[in-house]
Simulated scan of single mutants.
Amino acid sequence: MTAIAAPAPVTARPRPVADVLTMLRRSLLRAVRYPGLTVFLVLGPLVMLLLFVYVFGGAFGAGVAPGVAPGADGRAAYLDYITPTLLVITVVGGATSVATSAAMDAASGIMARFKTMAIAPGSVLSGMVLGFLVQALAALVLVLGAAVAMGYRPDADVLDWLALLGLFVLLGFALNWLCVAMGLNAQSVETASNMPLILVLLPFLGSGFVPVETMPTAVRWFAEYQPFTPIIETVRGLLAGGGLEGAVVAQALGWILAIGVAGYAWARSLYRRERRI
């Protein structure tokens, strides 16, 4: 009598797009359940906006816009100058939060469990990156709305706004991948929140708050060639409705591409490696 072979077990196949959307939903649900990180994305830039405009703006505005008298005119001039910086810092803040989230998932063992499931390997990190990108874009709208309520009036046209949106999406992707890698590389959740602090400090050491021309030679050299100066200047030019320098835009896109590729490669390498704490 011939034996009948048992049917081979059916193995579920990963569905990359559906898996990424599932992980994106998970990331957004976490933002709803733990709103502290999301609130910080908006609260931090808003506090800086109010502080620098209403406390320091009257004096600083006379420095960034020659011929402007300290006081109300100075505050208006500094609001125009600092708003693009705080929009960039909002995206940076979202990226630093993803480092903590990645470290929490790695330390809790949920990522190790995901590796045993029939899901696309890249969907776990991609969903996290997309989730925090959505949060950062929502925070950008709120911060920009607050600046407009304070008197900021951008001169950007439709094409400028579309270019600005594309720039922020690219910047968010790049920084999120880099910070995911930082979070996976951290030895604990506590240290994960400290590693991306350099990204928060760099706008202060560039043209974000004062023109680089006012800095000493050594500091000015660093400020001119670090990543965030061309990025902030590109955002500033788009919001002003033109006046962009091709070299500055090329530097900004080059830095964003370099950060994104390096962060993606580092994050994927760390995800494949077994975590040992």
Rank of each mutant, 00 (worst) to 15 (best):
T2K: 15
A5L: 14
A6P: 10
P7M: 12
V10T: 11
V10Q: 11
T11P: 03
A12V: 12
R13S: 14
P14S: 13
P16V: 09
V17S: 12
L21W: 05
M23C: 10
M23T: 08
L28K: 02
R33I: 02
Y34M: 12
G36Q: 09
V39T: 03
F40W: 04
L43E: 08
L43F: 14
L43K: 01
P45L: 05
M48Q: 08
L50D: 00
V53K: 03
V55W: 01
F56Y: 13
G58W: 02
G61F: 07
A62C: 01
A65Q: 08
A65W: 05
P66L: 08
V68H: 12
P70T: 12
G71T: 08
G71E: 07
G71R: 06
G71V: 08
D73F: 06
R75G: 03
R75K: 15
A77T: 12
Y78W: 06
T83W: 00
T85E: 05
L86F: 10
L86R: 03
T90E: 03
G93Q: 14
T96H: 00
S97N: 08
V98L: 06
A99V: 01
A99L: 07
A102E: 01
A103Q: 06
A106D: 06
A107H: 05
G109W: 13
G109Y: 10
I110K: 07
M111I: 12
F114W: 09
F114Y: 05
K115N: 10
T116V: 14
T116N: 07
M117S: 02
M117N: 01
A118L: 03
S123A: 14
V124I: 09
G127K: 01
M128W: 04
F132Q: 15
L133V: 09
Q135I: 02
L137F: 04
A138P: 02
A138M: 13
V141E: 09
V143H: 09
G145I: 01
A147W: 04
V148I: 12
A149Q: 05
Y152L: 05
D155Q: 15
A156F: 12
A156N: 04
L159Y: 11
L165K: 01
L165R: 07
G166N: 08
F168N: 00
G172Y: 00
F173W: 04
L175D: 02
N176F: 07
W177V: 01
W177C: 02
L178G: 01
A181S: 05
A181T: 03
G183T: 03
L184M: 13
A186H: 03
A192S: 11
S193W: 00
S193P: 00
L197M: 14
L202A: 09
P203M: 02
L205G: 01
G208W: 00
F209W: 02
M215D: 01
A218K: 11
A218N: 08
A218M: 15
R220G: 06
W221M: 09
F222E: 13
Y225F: 13
Q226F: 06
T229D: 14
L238G: 06
L238F: 13
L239Q: 12
L239P: 10
G241I: 04
G246L: 11
A247Y: 09
V249G: 02
L253T: 05
G254D: 06
G254A: 13
W255C: 11
L257Q: 07
A258P: 10
G260I: 10
A262K: 07
G263V: 14
A265N: 04
A265C: 14
W266F: 15
R268Q: 14
Y271C: 05
R273H: 13
